[in-house]
Computed example of a mutant assay.
Amino acid sequence: MSIHSYALPLSLTLALAACGDTEADSDSSGTTHADDSTGSGEAACVEDDLDPMPFAGPGYDADKGGLQEPLQDKYVASTTFLVLRPETAQDFGATVQAMIPVLTSNPGLVGFSTATSAKCGTARTLTVWRDQTAMMNFVASDEHVAGMTRAQEFSTTGTVTSWEVTRAELPLGWDTAIARATAATPSY
């Protein structure tokens, strides 16, 4: 897979520009549904339009059988969840776009996916790393630090969490990432 195929998907950029209302959803009976995605326990939007890109990266290629050599017994997974401010969508997209080359050039990256909900105005990431050191090398990169320092400018709340996974658990699905983000304490 070429580096260009890791570019921020057009759907993410468009979804960020069209961030929807983040108020609670109600069903036909008027019942408000608790959000299973924020980890806050507060009522919020249901991301039934979540639009993920395929999980891929230097260490994972579905067309070549999935995980690529060298195989390991354990990996590190991480997920982020942001409720975006619609007025900052363009700057947020540019900031994320600047991170992609740094992310994909990290020799410890296995793979990643992003997902957005235009209806809820949310953005999510899911990454898998060969080890904690590789993940922290990306976290400490200038591009990622620049994004982290602007997180509260771009979003009203955010959750970041990481955990160990086995080879048998890969590739991770969005249901796992959402459950992990839901169980974690919001970062702000």
Rank of each mutant, 00 (worst) to 15 (best):
T127Q: 11
T114A: 04
F112Y: 11
A77K: 11
Y60N: 06
K74S: 14
A123R: 08
G41W: 01
E153P: 01
A134V: 02
T31L: 11
K74H: 10
D48I: 04
E153W: 05
E143L: 06
Q90D: 07
A146T: 13
P171T: 11
F81V: 04
R150L: 15
G65P: 06
P70N: 05
L172V: 06
T38I: 02
T157L: 15
T122L: 09
T125R: 02
G158M: 14
T88P: 00
G65N: 07
A77S: 12
F154G: 10
Q132P: 00
R130K: 14
E42D: 14
T127P: 03
G59N: 05
P52F: 08
E87V: 02
Y75L: 09
V46R: 09
W174I: 06
L82D: 03
P54C: 03
T161Y: 04
V145F: 05
E143M: 06
R167D: 11
E143P: 10
S78M: 12
L170Q: 05
E169T: 09
M99R: 12
S155E: 10
T157A: 13
H33C: 01
G108D: 03
L71W: 03
M148V: 15
M148I: 12
M136P: 01
D48C: 03
A98P: 04
G158P: 01
M99K: 03
D175I: 09
A89Y: 01
S162P: 02
S29H: 11
R130A: 08
A151T: 14
P101M: 02
D73V: 07
C45F: 00
D35R: 04
L82V: 08
G108N: 04
P70D: 10
E169S: 14
Y60M: 10
R167P: 00
N137D: 15
R124M: 13
A168K: 14
L126S: 08
T159N: 11
A140L: 10
T157N: 14
A115V: 10
N137C: 01
V128R: 08
T95S: 15
A98R: 14
G93Q: 04
P171Q: 10
C45E: 02
E164G: 07
T88E: 13
S117D: 06
P86H: 05
L71N: 05
A43T: 08
S141H: 06
G147S: 11
E169G: 02
T88L: 05
E143Y: 02
A118L: 07
T161P: 04
S113T: 14
S29K: 07
A77E: 01
F55E: 04
A123D: 11
D131C: 08
L84R: 05
M135E: 12
T149N: 15
T149W: 00
T161N: 09
E69K: 14
T79G: 15
A140C: 02
P54G: 03
R130D: 06
T116K: 00
F138Y: 15
C120Q: 09
G39C: 08
